[in-house]
């Protein structure tokens, strides 16, 4: 499929930045980062020895813990295997209805109108035409009966179906060598995943649960469902998908939750 170069941003200087300086000091830059991590880790250990000091609220401790969390992102990406499947279950194990969870109560959900809803595409994508709910529902479906595991510790088995994200990205001419796929949701939720997970066979854009169209609390008309990530990564009520090489912070990563959140 043809890949197109994204249009140059009008905010980007025409001449660009001299990359040779960056290249020249690449080693130094990496070293500074490593030192910071090491120093942060050491001072963390020392601080915990002190009593009567609320270390959790200390700014430098916060930064060190976040640095470790980013290191954990890298470790998780390294151990992720694109061909390793999450265990699947028989239909008899499926919980109906699914368990609701969001950053607000179920009474506060704002249902979307499937007739007027469209999916917006942005970033490193060849064909950015919008998709309607009918068009999405007509795509070839994959069914996923996998365990949903929440970062809080609860879990249930769900039965989701919809188009494989990999197939959809290929169909719209997305740059599959880009680093991230980001999702914007109708409830002001934002989510992003690594490309390796986006291309995993158990990553789908779900339109059905238990063979029926997904209902309002669970992200109608379109939601993300992955067998290899924690529950909160599975964006609901998706309104836009973008493919990018710039790290997209997410609703929860901004609040300190681990970004990769692989299982």
């Amino acid at each position: 499929m043809a890949r197109t170069t994204p249009a140059r941003s009008q905010f980007r200087p025409a001449a660009g930045i001299d990359q040779s300086i960056l290249r020249e000091h690449k080693g130094l830059l990496a070293e500074i980062d490593r030192r910071k991590l090491l120093r942060g880790t050491l001072s963390l250990g020392a601080l915990t020895m002190l009593t009567g000091c609320d270390v959790a609220d200390d700014g430098s401790v916060r930064k060190a813990l976040l640095a470790v969390s980013q290191w954990n992102d890298r470790v998780q990406a390294a151990i992720f295997r694109g061909d390793h499947l999450a265990p699947t279950y028989p239909e008899s194990a499926v919980l109906k209805p699914a368990r609701f969870n969001a950053y607000y109560d179920v009474e506060e959900i704002r249902p979307l109108d499937g007739a007027t809803w469209t999916l917006e595409l942005a970033g490193l994508i060849g064909d950015k035409r919008r998709w309607t709910a009918q068009q999405m529902a007509a795509l070839p479906e994959t069914e996923l009966i996998v365990r949903h595991i929440c970062v809080e510790g609860w879990d249930y088995v769900g039965q989701w179906s919809g188009v494989r994200l990999k197939d959809f990205l290929q169909r719209i001419g997305a740059d599959l060598t880009a680093k991230y796929v980001a999702f914007t949701c109708a409830d002001d939720y934002t989510e992003s995943i690594d490309m390796a997970t986006a291309l995993h066979p158990q990553t789908i854009l779900a339109t059905r649960y238990g063979r029926e169209p997904i209902t309002d609390p669970f992200g109608y008309p379109l939601r993300l469902r992955m067998g290899t990530k924690l529950g909160f990564k599975n964006a609901k009520w998706i309104t836009a998908i973008s493919v990018t090489n710039t790290f997209p912070e997410t609703f929860w990563s901004k609040q300190g939750f681990n970004w990769f959140a692989g299982i």
Binding site: A56, L66, V68, S69, N72, V151, G256, N258
Partner: peptide
């Protein structure tokens, strides 16, 4: 307990894990 909210406790836990 350690950590203001769950995310901070998780950060501590996944730091301590390595140690």
């Amino acid at each position: 307990t350690l950590g203001k909210y769950a995310q901070h406790a998780l950060q501590w836990h996944f730091f301590g894990m390595w140690v």
